[in-house]
Simulated assay, not measured.
Amino acid sequence: MTDKTPDKTTALVTGANKGIGYEVAAGLAREGMTVLLGSRDRERGEDAAARLRAAGGDVRTIVLDVTDPATIEAAAAALTRLDVLVNNAGISGPVGRPPGATPPQDLRDVFETNIIGVLMVTNAMLPLLRRSSAARIVNVSSGVGSLAHHTDPDHYMSGLPPMATYPVSKTALNALTVQYAKELRKDGILVNAAAPGACATDLTKDLPYKITRTAADGAAIIVRLATLGPDGPTGGFYDDEGTVPW
């Protein structure tokens, strides 16, 4: 990434070298933004950014590990402008373990990326976002974070196997989204959570059923929330069909 942040609307997408994050970066580039493609691995990030530039996007790589304060601080220090932050980086943790068989460290590991990482990145970027005239923050959540879905006997999620890691982290992320929205409303910063739906990505490759929804399909709601107008909502949870119940 060049040292000087461009003058046009600038977006940072974490975990963007593949999957939904990559498609979000592509979508925001098509919207005319300069996109900072966050990636833990510089080479993979450069490869992804090069593909998007070949398609006509203004996309640059920024090395960023959401669990590493040093890379977060370095990324923030390298920027002079930021208008959109998409907290996309996330991990699933072990799949198939019920809460009663989950070691505490498994939960700590998932929260380190999916919650604490979001907090660290957001806080590091807040000074830049507060200087923007139309800042937007989108936290990439999941429908499995909806308590309403899991407790509704008519919803298919109520029949999913119980887990103490990924779903719990997304419920916590929804709560964190609401608290940031409360804090930043006075600054005109809109903060929302997106449920992209189950998509065929590395995150879902170990699930015991086939998923046909693409990463590009999942990215659509995230791009929409990242480009909300001044009268758009804040503190909400949305998928393609509208509001997702908490």
Rank of each mutant, 00 (worst) to 15 (best):
T165K: 13
G93Q: 14
A164N: 13
R131K: 12
A77Q: 04
G96H: 03
P98W: 00
R53N: 05
A164Y: 09
N114W: 02
A135R: 02
A78G: 12
A55F: 05
S169D: 07
A75P: 11
P104L: 10
S141Q: 08
V121L: 02
P127W: 00
A70E: 02
L82R: 03
Y166P: 13
L176K: 08
S142L: 10
G90I: 06
T177F: 12
L126R: 05
V178K: 10
P127V: 02
E183N: 07
L64C: 09
E73G: 05
A124T: 05
G96E: 02
P167S: 05
G143R: 06
V178I: 13
T177N: 15
N114T: 11
R60A: 09
P94F: 06
T80V: 02
N139V: 04
A135I: 12
T80R: 06
T113I: 11
A55T: 07
L176S: 15
P94S: 12
V95I: 08
T165A: 14
I115L: 14
L107R: 15
L64W: 05
V121R: 01
K182Q: 06
V86F: 08
I116C: 10
P103H: 08
G56A: 08
L107W: 15
I137L: 08
K170L: 09
E73K: 08
E183L: 13
R108E: 12
L129D: 10
I137G: 07
H155C: 06
A148L: 03
M163E: 12
P153L: 03
D152W: 00
I62M: 00
V66W: 02
P162R: 00
I137N: 05
T113S: 10
L160C: 01
P104M: 06
G93D: 11
E112F: 12
A77D: 00
P104W: 04
Y180R: 14
A101R: 15
Y166S: 07
L64V: 13
V140Q: 02
A124C: 04
D68A: 05
V138E: 11
A148C: 01
L126V: 13
L129V: 11
L79K: 07
D152G: 11
T102I: 15
T71S: 01
L184W: 02
R136A: 04
Y156F: 07
I72T: 02
R60K: 04
V140C: 04
G143Y: 02
P161E: 03
R51N: 09
D154V: 05
A101C: 07
R108Q: 11
